[in-house]
Design a protein around this nucleic acid. Structure first.
Lengths: 151, 151
DNA sequence: CCGCATCCCTATAGATACTG
DNA sequence: CAGTATCTATAGGGATGCGG
């Protein structure tokens, strides 16, 4: 049940309602490529997101089915965030952003290497990395974390 | 000369600094696919952008080299906005958004048709449509519209 | 410690009315 | 037509609190 308010029936508009801000895709990036899965790890990205914003975005992404909250497999005190299939499906989009940016900005060598792989075998990169994320997902089981429903 | 303040050297972050909000990509969409090229046309999209936001976004997009302001070929009173090659290069991204959205939202038939074309011959669709936009660009000549530089 | 919630304050987004 | 001016609402930064 998406929490977005539809401005129109345009798919681009509806997508932007979910992740069209300066932070959501960075959180998704960290969950997707940086092997970050806890709140404190997500707090420590280079862009220095503040804690209230991170909390707000995680909630919104969860309500829109992009991520899910699970019990951390190792620590009872921690929470495990991971992408849902809907979130993993954003991978082509993130790769496309990275490819676009590389044409007009300087990018770190590590990222340029991934871009080069994507240019060579785009479908393959997406398939493998998606499978990897899906495999990780199956290790943990969903908690009964209460979700805020529409009032 | 990009007006963005770099939060990091991540290409995704830097991209979001330019068009990571709820409106910029919709303006780009209208310039790219809806054959809109004037301020008043851009004002009339289904999502009902307000005039100050449109003005602010157009300025930011211009400062970041995504669009350019030209003299309208037909009317002295009008302004002609169009995508630069840098802006046209965002087309794969917009298509990818549309394809993602179609998996999870209902989309209008007209858009589903374009998506189907993109799935069948992605590179071809991008090549043809980009060429069309570039061809349109060459008809007009740049005005001497003063651009705001860094103070 | 971990994962937030809350408060305070500032900056930016956004709606509406108006103008050269 | 193509924007400003004005005002209000929300986003966001930073510090701190607080239950588990």
């Amino acid at each position: 049940m998406p929490k977005i308010t539809q401005r129109s029936d345009c798919p681009i508009s509806n997508s932007l309602e979910i992740w069209g801000d300066k932070w959501s895709l960075l959180i998704i990036r960290d969950l997707m490529f940086a092997h970050k899965n806890t709140y404190s790890e997500l707090l420590q990205s280079a862009e220095k997101i503040s804690t209230n914003i991170l909390a707000a975005r995680l909630l919104a992404l969860e309500e829109n089915g992009i991520i899910e909250k699970l019990a951390h497999p190792d620590s009872k005190a921690k929470v495990w965030y991971q992408l849902t299939p809907k979130g993993i499906a954003l991978m082509p989009l993130l790769l496309e952003i990275s490819l676009w940016a590389e044409k007009f900005f300087e990018v770190p060598d590590s990222i340029a290497a991934v871009n080069e792989m994507a240019r060579r075998d785009r479908a393959g990169v997406i398939r493998e990395k998606s499978a990897e994320l899906l495999a990780m997902s199956s290790v943990t089981a969903a908690t009964s974390t209460p979700k805020i429903k529409d009032v």
